[in-house]
Computed example of a mutant assay.
Amino acid sequence: MSESPDLPRVTDEVTAEWLLPKIGLQKAKIETKRVIAGTASLILKTVTPEEENAGEKKAPLNICVKGGFNPDMLAAYPFVLGLYTRELDFYANVAPKVPQLNLPKVLWSGKTSKNAIIVMEDVAANSGYVFADPVDTWSVDRVKLIVEQFAALHAATWGTKAEDAPWLDDHYEEAVLGLCAMWDAIVLAEDRPPVPEYMKDKEKMIPAIKTWFATRDPKFGCILHGDAHIGNTAWSEQTKTPMIVDWQIIHRGSCFTDIAYYIMTALTIEDRKAYEKDLIDHYLAKLHEFGGPKLSREDPGVMEEYRKSLMAGYSWVLCPYTMQKKERVWAIVSRLVSAMEDHNPVELLVKE
């Protein structure tokens, strides 16, 4: 990862002059295939080298340039710059410790006080990965494979303390509470997804969120993906393997945050009800297999922690449509409401 004073801030600034030295080329034809807008923007390009290597032309490269290329979003939500930076830190500091994680190859990364950019392989073009849409759901078998990757991450970082990862701060809590500050404009807006009345009550929900933050059990502490919903995973039919992407909200917390959040968002309501316990058991078995502690659903605090961790999904109730499309918010919130009704995390937290 490098420091750079002149990172592009809009897509048009990702020029051949800027990009080619980052990927070790001098002359190449560059084609922009697609720009995908989101919390971070993805610029998908094909780079066809013009120079020869040992008398042969180098093969074309399919790459993804990811960063903050929406100045309006950065102005409206300044905290998102920290999300871009944190993903770079994940690839530099955590990914090398977890070989079981299936991740794209990073070709270059750099950050400044105004932006952070990663240049990586385009796994959709290279390996046929299809990124999940939050409106969709996955099969139980696919979810089981993702749960295994979370287990590997958690086991490798189990017990990580603040001094072990000084680049990880309290950004997650700050971001959620920052959205809470816009409660009336988001949660109470007319075109928001239907939720029970108590889930609209900021006098009840904000204290519950703060209690959840304060009472996460440190004995389950590790480094989390932190935004573990189905939309941050991909599947390749070519290799029959999943991939976890978008490591922007990585933070220290309870391992069950990733697990409860992912199971809730990735499965149909019917599959969650039928297979939730089996998936928790599978996660716990893999956690131990990868070097983490040996835990059971019968152990004190395990299922209570899982239930509380469903509060992570409430971020979708708080999510403005400028950050996620309306149909995605409605789809995830419908699954969240069902899980909240089954597990009652708010009731559990109110009793704390």
Score class of each variant (00 low, 15 high):
residue 279 L to R: 01
residue 151 A to P: 00
residue 149 Q to K: 04
residue 21 P to A: 09
residue 163 E to G: 03
residue 333 V to R: 04
residue 260 A to W: 02
residue 233 T to W: 03
residue 291 G to K: 14
residue 337 V to L: 09
residue 125 A to G: 06
residue 296 S to Y: 14
residue 282 H to C: 03
residue 86 R to V: 05
residue 143 V to C: 03
residue 144 K to T: 07
residue 39 T to S: 08
residue 237 E to G: 07
residue 276 E to I: 08
residue 256 F to W: 01
residue 210 K to W: 10
residue 112 T to C: 10
residue 120 M to V: 12
residue 71 P to R: 11
residue 303 M to Q: 09
residue 135 V to Q: 06
residue 293 P to A: 07
residue 122 D to H: 10
residue 300 P to H: 13
residue 194 P to R: 08
residue 278 D to I: 13
residue 333 V to Q: 00
residue 84 Y to P: 02
residue 266 A to D: 01
residue 108 W to I: 06
residue 32 T to A: 08
residue 272 R to G: 02
residue 54 A to F: 15
residue 108 W to E: 03
residue 292 G to A: 10
residue 113 S to H: 15
residue 35 V to I: 15
residue 269 I to W: 06
residue 346 V to C: 04
residue 209 I to P: 02
residue 83 L to V: 08
residue 42 L to Y: 11
residue 341 E to D: 13
residue 172 Y to M: 04
residue 327 E to S: 15
residue 95 A to H: 09
residue 259 I to F: 01
residue 53 N to W: 15
residue 311 M to L: 15
residue 280 I to G: 00
residue 12 D to M: 10
residue 33 K to N: 14
residue 128 G to S: 09
residue 98 V to W: 08
residue 100 Q to F: 14
residue 161 K to N: 05
residue 227 D to P: 03
residue 172 Y to C: 01
residue 119 V to T: 06
residue 297 R to D: 07
residue 267 L to E: 00
residue 132 A to S: 08
residue 310 L to I: 12
residue 68 G to N: 12
residue 213 F to S: 00
residue 134 P to V: 07
residue 69 F to V: 04
residue 316 W to P: 00
residue 199 M to L: 15
residue 56 E to P: 04
residue 214 A to M: 11
